[in-house]
Simulated scan of single mutants.
Amino acid sequence: MPALDTPICDFGWKAPDFTLKDPQGRAVTLSETASGKKAVLIAFICNHCPYVKAIADRLADDARVLQEAGIAVIAVMSNDYRAYPADSPDNMTAFAKAHKFPFPYLIDEDQSVAKAYDAVCTPDFFGLNKDLELQYRGRLDDARMGDASNRTAELVNAMRQIAETGQGPTHQVPSMGCSIKWASA
């Protein structure tokens, strides 16, 4: 699987609203989730990607930190799970449980949300301010797939800055991961 990097942050890009369901059929709407929050993180992830597997526990831990700071967190799985059964809804439930995700993990069944956001890989992070304007499109941390014992939590730091100022950091290192698995037309 070739690794892809996320594009440079398009500061101020207005995130479109969406409603997606989790594997149990519960609907989650971005605007409702964001209501009253200082910022929102949307993470495009999946179950089978080695990059996501490497960061899943750190992502869950960082999400708890962000949620305590008044920042909403949502994860979206946009891969074609019919072609990649490891990303099926049942496997999403098991993956979320294994990594103790404290956030909704949603299915982008028709891939419309990934397309609207121009998500390119897993993981692909979108850090939004309270007005749902893009302020961060970088990586989780500087550990990548390696030893995280001495990491710099770049995503947490960026999201805290966004929550406090409405603006993301000017220097951002792209996230790297596996391509979104698009359904064949």
Rank of each mutant, 00 (worst) to 15 (best):
157 N>T: 07
152 T>R: 10
142 D>W: 01
176 M>C: 13
121 C>Q: 03
122 T>P: 13
127 G>R: 07
121 C>T: 04
173 V>P: 02
180 I>Q: 03
128 L>N: 07
150 N>A: 15
108 D>W: 05
155 L>H: 12
136 Y>C: 09
175 S>T: 13
144 R>P: 00
150 N>H: 13
150 N>Y: 05
149 S>V: 09
104 P>Q: 02
160 R>A: 00
183 A>V: 02
156 V>Q: 03
119 A>K: 09
146 G>W: 09
171 H>Q: 15
148 A>D: 14
157 N>H: 02
124 D>L: 13
170 T>G: 14
108 D>V: 00
110 D>C: 00
146 G>H: 09
136 Y>W: 11
123 P>C: 02
138 G>S: 10
122 T>V: 04
138 G>P: 15
174 P>Y: 15
103 F>P: 06
139 R>G: 07
106 L>K: 01
166 G>T: 00
151 R>M: 12
128 L>R: 01
116 A>M: 00
123 P>L: 08
143 A>R: 09
110 D>M: 00
122 T>M: 05
117 Y>K: 12
129 N>A: 06
164 E>Q: 14
152 T>N: 14
141 D>Q: 11
174 P>S: 15
155 L>I: 11
154 E>I: 07
154 E>M: 09
175 S>A: 15
151 R>V: 06
148 A>F: 09
115 K>L: 08
123 P>A: 10
133 E>M: 01
166 G>D: 04
115 K>Y: 00
171 H>C: 03
144 R>E: 05
134 L>R: 05
149 S>K: 15
103 F>A: 03
120 V>L: 14
174 P>D: 08
154 E>K: 09
150 N>G: 14
112 S>P: 04
120 V>A: 08
149 S>Y: 02
141 D>M: 06
132 L>T: 12
179 S>N: 14
128 L>C: 05
161 Q>G: 13
130 K>M: 03
104 P>V: 09
172 Q>D: 10
170 T>L: 15
164 E>N: 12
124 D>N: 11
138 G>N: 10
128 L>F: 05
112 S>F: 10
149 S>I: 13
178 C>M: 07
182 W>D: 05
180 I>D: 00
126 F>A: 01
141 D>G: 05
129 N>F: 12
112 S>T: 10
156 V>E: 08
147 D>C: 08
102 P>E: 02
135 Q>H: 08
100 K>T: 12
160 R>L: 15
135 Q>A: 06
118 D>Y: 08
100 K>Q: 14
176 M>Y: 11
149 S>A: 15
179 S>M: 14
114 A>H: 01
141 D>T: 14
111 Q>P: 06
161 Q>W: 06
137 R>Q: 11
177 G>R: 13
176 M>R: 15
108 D>L: 01
142 D>R: 11
113 V>Y: 02
129 N>Q: 08
168 G>K: 03
184 S>P: 04
135 Q>L: 03
177 G>T: 12
133 E>D: 01
135 Q>D: 11
181 K>M: 08
146 G>Q: 11
144 R>D: 04
127 G>C: 13
114 A>C: 04
162 I>E: 11
145 M>W: 03
164 E>M: 07
165 T>D: 07
122 T>F: 04
111 Q>T: 06
119 A>H: 04
175 S>P: 09
180 I>S: 00
